[in-house]
Design a protein around this nucleic acid. Structure first.
Lengths: 110, 110
DNA sequence: ATAATTAGATTACTTTTTGTAACTAATGCA
DNA sequence: TGCATTAGTTACAAAAAGTAATCTAATTAT
């Protein structure tokens, strides 16, 4: 029935998880703190926290604690995470070429 | 607050829509009928139908009707859809290199 | 004309996932 | 002591996803 390569399917399901792509995009720019990502992305703290835990579990994101005042926690991409850069870059290129700006709040009437 | 390019964000939200990546993967192999995709993908008819309508609306997928007996309807990628090939190929490469087969039914105990 | 076949849409219903806002924990400073 | 700051967590309501069964349209053999 299902003709897909299990690794590919797993990768697709992971990368299709809402907000994961945008979080990867943020982290490709460099280390980020929780609150920076929360400010930059259209996503609530609860979901950001969920997604960061997922990505950490998958070995894509690393969490680094700096015991300063106030405490600073930085998220960075692992090698596995950085290896996703081509995917994100391709999506950026595609978006520039094909996604119509007008259509962004795309709520066509029925 | 939100620092993202609107086109990129829209592309990300679209491509992160569940099953869209797998549907694109199917269609990159060539024209497909509804029932073929339903058989190949781990997705119900209702969702497949929803996603095909979304992709058609976005100009990524084309729906072609052949009035044979019985009627045949084929889905293909538009130019905009075919332009997503690099994204899918990158994900395949990444999956082969980094996704661990063991971990596919990834349900770690808490 | 009517029943059978195929594609795909729709409906009704349950389960998951989201989003929001209020709350907690750890730390150091006034 | 108690307030400010960062980084989350919890509880709960709302939205979306998932399933299976049913429905519709086109065609054609009877």
């Amino acid at each position: 029935m299902n003709q897909l390569c299990p690794r590919f399917e797993k990768a697709m399901v992971l990368l299709s998880t809402r907000w994961v792509g945008l979080i990867l995009f943020e982290l490709l720019k460099g280390a980020k703190r929780f609150s920076e990502m929360e400010a930059d992305l259209p996503i609530s703290g609860r979901l950001l926290s969920d997604r960061l835990k997922l990505l950490e579990k998958e070995g894509i994101v690393e969490r680094n604690i700096y015991s300063e005042f106030p405490v600073r926690i930085e998220y960075t991409l692992s090698e596995k995470g950085k290896a996703l850069e081509p995917v994100i870059k391709d999506i950026q290129r595609w978006a520039e070429e094909y996604v119509i700006a007008d259509d962004i709040h795309g709520k066509e009437a029925e």
